[in-house]
Amino acid sequence: MSSTELPSVPPTSVLPKSVPVRVAEGERLRSVGLPGVTLTVRSRPPAREGLQPALFVHGLGGSSQNWSALMAMLDGDVASEAVDLPGFGDSPPPDDGNYSITGHARAVIRYLEASGRGPVHLFGNSLGGAVTTRVAAVRPDLVRTLTLVSPALPELRVQRTAVPTGLLGVPGVAALFSRFTREWTAEQRVRGVLALCYGDPGRVSEEAFRYAVEELERRLRLPYFWDAMTRSARGILNAYTLGGQHGLWRQAERVLAPTLLIYGGRDQLVGFRMAQRAARAFRDCRLLTLPEAGHVAMMEYPETVATAVRELLADAADTADAADTTNSTGAAGAAGTAATRS
């Protein structure tokens, strides 16, 4: 695994073309070379030694920056890193062009294996929620806990507001949409995304809006922008139709890690009604519903989400300590019995 640190830019500065992305105070970016893929990783220095590692995975069209607010609030609880999935943020496309859920999950697994940070507290939003569900199901050794914010798990009755996003995965639609919207400004596009993803777009500060516009302008210049979007959207659609052991709901049932599910009442992309189905699917889970939140609760209500995450971590630690105590007691008892018999 090769790693190269990328230059950071203060949040209030203007982005020159030579600098890929900005980072919040206390963050750093580095580029990590792995077999078949190169990932950009956003991290925060641990507040103290001994903190358990956490890894955050963003949704369709997002980036690791979507987790910055929550990562900052968890500084004293975990050692945080967030990845840009292949083709998103500042990560280049994968060598094999595979943007399926399995392809993205494979990239996350390769990073965890190469970095040696696992098992981690794993977080996923939307597309990232589907990806991390698959990771937790197929590689339980890499996951301590799982936190899913509006995970993109299959729905039989998709909301009408989510249909346009799903259609991006249909061949030819993205090119048609690109031609139809070529006169749209970056500001118009960002306002549309915020209206779709936030329960209350008014919660976005003017500074954050300006940054989002700058970032979208940068990413629209990338030759693979629409390809990454459309192929990843197609990957979600394909995962929705996949049955058997590889189906996402079946894999959710296989997740062993303690799981926190977070759903927003104003989510226009993932149906709020799916919260109860998800709560039944994951065997060891707790559910947090936020009636005023949209699709990105960790960005709208980071304080509330951080509180729920801390409770998950504390309970998971207590359970692990109890298991260690039971194992130690059992081992001591077995040793005593063996000594008596001898």
Rank of each mutant, 00 (worst) to 15 (best):
G244V: 00
V204A: 10
T230M: 10
T40N: 10
N98Q: 01
E214L: 06
T40F: 05
E49Y: 06
G330P: 05
V213D: 04
V120N: 09
G118K: 08
A105P: 00
V305K: 06
E113H: 09
P94Q: 09
I236T: 02
Q52E: 13
T340G: 07
S328T: 15
G169C: 14
R182L: 08
E217T: 12
V14I: 12
G87H: 11
D200H: 05
S31C: 05
G50K: 05
S80P: 13
M298C: 06
S126I: 01
A69W: 09
S2I: 12
G33E: 15
E206I: 03
G62Q: 07
A317S: 15
A279I: 01
D315I: 04
S205Y: 01
E253N: 03
S342P: 06
P20C: 05
V131K: 05
A208F: 06
E217A: 10
G336R: 05
M71H: 03
T181F: 13
S150Y: 02
V9A: 07
A278V: 02
P86K: 08
G76F: 13
R48S: 10
L15I: 09
G294M: 05
P16C: 14
S18N: 14
R182V: 12
S126C: 11
V296W: 00
A275Y: 08
L176I: 12
A322L: 14
A212M: 11
N238G: 08
T185R: 08
L216F: 01
S100H: 01
P7Y: 09
E215P: 01
R189E: 15
V138M: 12
V309E: 09
T102G: 04
S8F: 03
D200A: 02
V9I: 14
A114L: 07
R48M: 07
P154Q: 01
G129C: 00
V32W: 04
A317C: 09
P94R: 13
A317Y: 04
C197K: 05
S63W: 04
T289Q: 15
P223N: 07
A114H: 05
S91Q: 08
G333K: 03
M229V: 11
R286M: 13
S205P: 06
D75T: 11
E217N: 05
R160S: 04
E155F: 01
A297E: 07
A186C: 10
A82N: 00
T241P: 00
T165S: 07
T165M: 14
L122T: 07
T133I: 00
R42W: 14
T102E: 11
V57S: 04
S80Q: 01
T147N: 03
